[in-house]
Design a protein around this nucleic acid. Structure first.
Length: 650
DNA sequence: CTGGGGAAGGGGCCC
DNA sequence: AGGGCCCCTTCCCCA
């Protein structure tokens, strides 16, 4: 399909002046309703819903996070819930609600947070406002080190210096806008107070100016059903929100390390380009780069973008702070007509960043970027992600692996050392095995043994992970309810259940799940597949766990007590099997008791593999796994042989 | 009312 | 870090 040249010309001229404004309004409306929101931002005990695309188009820092996570946890020492609300409003509207009273302090906090989040337009706007109020000259020296991309740990004292005698911005009470804010009810507070009546739709009552009385009842189970993807509204209980200035509820760090991955604080000691503990593939927002003075992105073609990426120059739709400031100044000079009044959304100034400006949009960009251009630049998307390119310049000499930063290389080298230590320790441990008649195959396969419980593992990392189960204090607390976990993954999974995040959807019925495995299990309902069969009655089950429950029914007598009378040898085997497989002895015995047909066939015991096959079949393991398990327990073979001897037909 | 099955939520833990 | 599996438990439905 092709258009005549004239038609192309016509298309070029066909521009709806209010398009960008309408688009933004729609997006903001969607945000307030939670519609298509695909990310949750946790700031202290406040939750905000938003759209990844919008965040990524507005903030370099948030972009680096949303690429990898649906749940972002911001350091509340860097940005308080109240300030983040203002910033989120700005992102979705291009307007900054009036900060008051003590506006400069709040504005300073917004500036600090905008720097932290790398939103140059907002940084420039705050500076401009501070300048107008006569504060910025005073502050300039203080804010100057606030170069974009600095970790705020370094920046915070600067702010303190700026506002000597006043609380740090992070200690300020939440900013309550003078006029009702328009939106903001995408935010949900995990309040300590509960029990008050529900508020419909989970939105803040208008009379509260959307200050966040919405509590999150964490005592309830996660919702079920297709409607509950994000914080279901029926779980929201109003209650007074905790003041953002209050200390965190738990003694533990308020934001988990895992959720903070990629946080600037984690980079504070890193050289440019290092991403320790963060998102290794995320564009490094802290790489020192000269301010981008390139023409607006739409004019840059793919090759130029690639070239700039290769040169570590800024590519994206983000304006450098200085550039954004110039943008604002150009805007002021443009003398664009004032924005239409929006009573629900007090404008900071008549020439605030304006998402739509019909005059300049119509005149095109040849006479300098218009506010519309500015928005275009913010909304422009790259055709590729930098993470697709790798430059692993730091190479580990022993193993030849490459890493993008010295930090990662160092971490790798440390792991080398630990690994070698473990190997050494394992080699030393092997000596007693020899004393006992030589190490079993299992000792070779799983040389890393726990000193507390004698369980053994294939690799040192798994052993370390296991050893945490013996610790008195579990190292990973939930930042919402305080429950503690031995593994970070378990904690983040638990957090998902708090937040109702269910990324795995059934194509057939739309039901959503928190885990892939659950979806797989669920899909058997639709397929009719019932792979788990009872060896006693032939009953089939879609879920293994239901087979296990069912087997208990078989095992229980009329009085509820176990009715199966297992031979001693079966119990002995069961004990060993239970030990090896981590099952309860009762269950292992139960499973083994259903194998009389096997046990009565001595030929089947002639080699290890048939036994493995039997074990695999009856314990739901892969045959290889079963073989490995059995290999670790040569005494099991002897026991099995004795059992066979005893029960073999004469 | 009760027991059994189906389905699902959540935690533990290994890989 | 995330996937996968196991276990315990709960809820609902039905005979």
């Amino acid at each position: 399909m092709s258009f005549p040249a004239s038609a192309h010309g016509m298309l070029d001229a066909m521009e709806v002046p209010s398009h960008s404004r309408q688009l933004l309004l729609q997006l903001n409306t969607q945000r307030t309703k939670g519609f298509l929101c695909d990310v949750i931002i946790v700031v202290q005990n406040a939750l905000f819903r938003a759209h990844k695309n919008i965040l990524a188009a507005s903030s370099a820092y948030l972009k680096s996070l949303v690429v990898h996570d649906n749940l972002l946890n911001l350091d509340h020492e860097m940005v308080s819930p109240g300030i983040f609300r203002l910033i989120l409003d700005f992102i979705y509207t291009g307007r900054l609600a009036e900060c008051e009273p003590g506006g400069e302090q709040s504005l300073g906090a917004v500036l600090a947070a905008a720097s932290y989040l790398q939103i140059p337009g907002l940084v420039a706007l705050c500076k401009k406002k501070l300048k107008r109020s006569g504060k910025y000259c005073h502050l300039r020296g203080g804010y100057a080190p606030y170069k974009l991309g600095r970790g705020l740990r370094a920046a915070t004292p600067v702010i303190q210096a700026c506002y000597s005698g006043t609380p740090r911005p992070v200690d300020l009470p939440p900013v309550e806008p003078a006029a009702p804010l328009n939106t903001q009810c995408g935010e949900l507070y995990a309040s300590a107070a509960q029990g008050a009546p529900l508020h419909p739709h989970g939105l803040c009552p208008p009379e509260r100016h959307c200050s966040p009385p919405c509590g999150l009842d964490l005592s309830k189970k996660s919702p079920t059903g297709p409607s509950a993807q994000l914080l279901p509204t029926d779980r929201l209980l109003p209650g007074e929100p905790r003041e953002p200035s209050l200390p965190p509820r738990h003694d533990s760090p308020p934001v988990s390390a895992g959720l903070l991955a990629g946080h600037p604080a984690a980079y504070k000691d890193s050289p440019p380009g290092g991403e320790p503990g963060g998102h290794p593939h995320a564009p490094d927002p802290f790489r020192s780069t000269p301010p981008c003075t390139e023409p607006p992105l739409p004019r840059a073609d793919g090759r130029e973008l690639m070239y700039r990426w290769m040169k570590h120059e800024p590519l994206g739709p983000y304006l450098d702070e200085g550039e954004a400031e110039k943008e604002l100044e150009r805007e002021e000079k443009a003398e664009s007509p004032p924005a239409a009044p929006q009573p629900r959304y007090p404008s900071v100034e008549s020439n605030d960043l304006e998402p739509d400006n019909s005059t300049s949009e119509e005149t095109g960009s040849s006479e300098g970027p218009s506010p519309g251009d500015a928005l275009d630049r913010y909304c422009n998307h790259l055709g590729y992600e930098p993470e697709s390119l790798g430059d692993n310049l730091y190479v580990c000499i022993p193993c030849g692996k490459g890493f993008p930063s010295s930090e990662q290389l160092n971490a790798h080298v440390e792991s080398h050392n630990e690994e070698e230590l473990y190997h050494k320790a394992a080699a030393e441990q092997a000596v007693p095995f020899l004393d006992k008649g030589g190490p079993g195959l299992g000792d070779i396969l799983r040389p890393y043994r726990c000193s507390s419980c004698d369980k053994s593992y294939k690799d040192p990392a798994t052993l370390r992970q296991h050893e945490k189960t013996h610790w008195l204090t579990r190292p990973y607390p939930c930042t919402i309810c305080g429950k503690k976990f031995t593994q970070r993954g378990t904690m983040t999974r638990h957090m998902r259940s708090h937040l109702g995040l269910k990324p795995f959807a059934c194509d057939a019925c739309g039901m959503r799940f928190t885990r892939q495995y659950r979806l797989t299990e669920h899909m058997r309902i639709h397929s009719g597949e019932k792979p788990y069969e009872c060896q006693v009655c032939g009953g089939k089950f879609a879920q293994q766990r239901n087979l296990i429950s069912h087997m208990k029914m078989h095992a229980a007598g009329p009085d509820g007590k176990a009715k199966l009378d297992f031979p001693d040898s079966v119990y002995a085997m069961a004990r060993l099997t239970a030990d090896q497989l981590g099952l309860k002895q009762e269950k292992a015995a139960e499973l083994l008791s259903h194998t009389s047909h096997f046990l009565s066939d001595p030929k089947a015991m002639e080699s290890l593999y048939p036994l493995a096959k039997f074990t695999a079949e009856h314990l739901g393991l892969s045959q290889d796994k079963a073989a490995e398990v059995l290999a670790q327990a040569p005494h099991l073979h002897a026991e099995a042989a004795r059992t066979i001897e005893r029960y073999s037909p004469p």
